[in-house]
Design a protein around this nucleic acid. Structure first.
Ligand SMILES: [Zn+2]
Ligand SMILES: [Zn+2]
Ligand SMILES: [Zn+2]
Ligand SMILES: [Zn+2]
Lengths: 134, 134
DNA sequence: CAATTGCATGTTATGTCATAACATTTAGAG
DNA sequence: CTCTAAATGTTATGACATAACATGCAATTG
């Protein structure tokens, strides 16, 4: 279907770093991880992240200023994606909900609002971390 | 019922600045607005904002790094508050939706996630700005 | 009252996140 | 090959947020 263009070297490196991390990373953390690959400046990371977000391969977590590899190849089908972010271990769960989409869509329609990007982020403790803390 | 303690001088000044602005302000913009009132450093603003958020009088808009005065004195009754933010004129609409709360609550319960703070922010163009742009 | 305690404040310095501006390189299209 | 668009490299700067420590100030309490 909508295939993505071949990734450039920088884009591949950044995506690989995020995949390997299995959790959100800040742009500057990515920069540090890629020093040995020749990365020298934040812009190299931010530019790669920008493209990867366009391709839907990476999401930005607005509430924690971090980036995460997309966990759901089909998430493009949804207009809104929700994230549950563990503040203890960094685990991120990506999910979508038709009803939530519909309800927010109703508000938007009723108020003639033209949405560009919707952020839904739940921060707290994941099951494992919550259990650990009793 | 749950009245708020008397605000301190700094808290009052910051809240007044936000009320007057009728839109979101960055902490540094607030700082500049309050120079004549003796404000000298970002921390004076951030500390006041922290308390005002605790009291439920101010909300932080995570996706744009800005703060806005609460527009709904009853929003405390809800566990989640959604914001529609116009990227053109800065208008912010605050609303809540029981169904959205319930659906996200179901996901949280099913995944044994312990939520601490939930962010729902829709960025785009408000009705007036969208009409203006055809 | 004096001592203690807790909170708010003031101040300096630093840390963290993101982009502007401009030069250079690279990969295709014609 | 030449032109062009996109990607990259590099330096500098802007924007957002907090650490650390000193000071003030009012309420409690012995
Ligand atoms: Zn995704
Ligand atoms: Zn966790
Ligand atoms: Zn509110
Ligand atoms: Zn508008």
């Amino acid at each position: 279907m909508t295939g993505h263009p071949e990734l450039t070297r920088n884009q591949s490196l950044v995506l690989k770093a995020l995949d390997k991390a299995e959790g959100p990373l800040s742009a500057y953390t990515i920069l540090d991880l890629l020093r040995d690959d020749g990365f020298r400046a934040p812009l190299q990371v931010y530019r790669a992240l920008e493209k990867l977000q366009e391709f839907g391969l990476v999401h930005r977590l607005e509430s924690i200023n971090a980036f995460v590899a997309c966990a759901d190849p089909h998430c493009h089908r949804h207009s809104m994606i929700a994230f549950a972010i563990c503040e203890n271990c960094g685990r991120v769960d990506e999910f979508s909900d038709e009803t939530v989409e519909a309800r927010l869509g109703e508000w938007v329609a009723a108020n003639r609002f033209k949405p560009a990007k919707t952020t839904i982020e739940i921060r707290g403790n994941c099951a494992a971390c919550a259990a650990q803390a009793q």
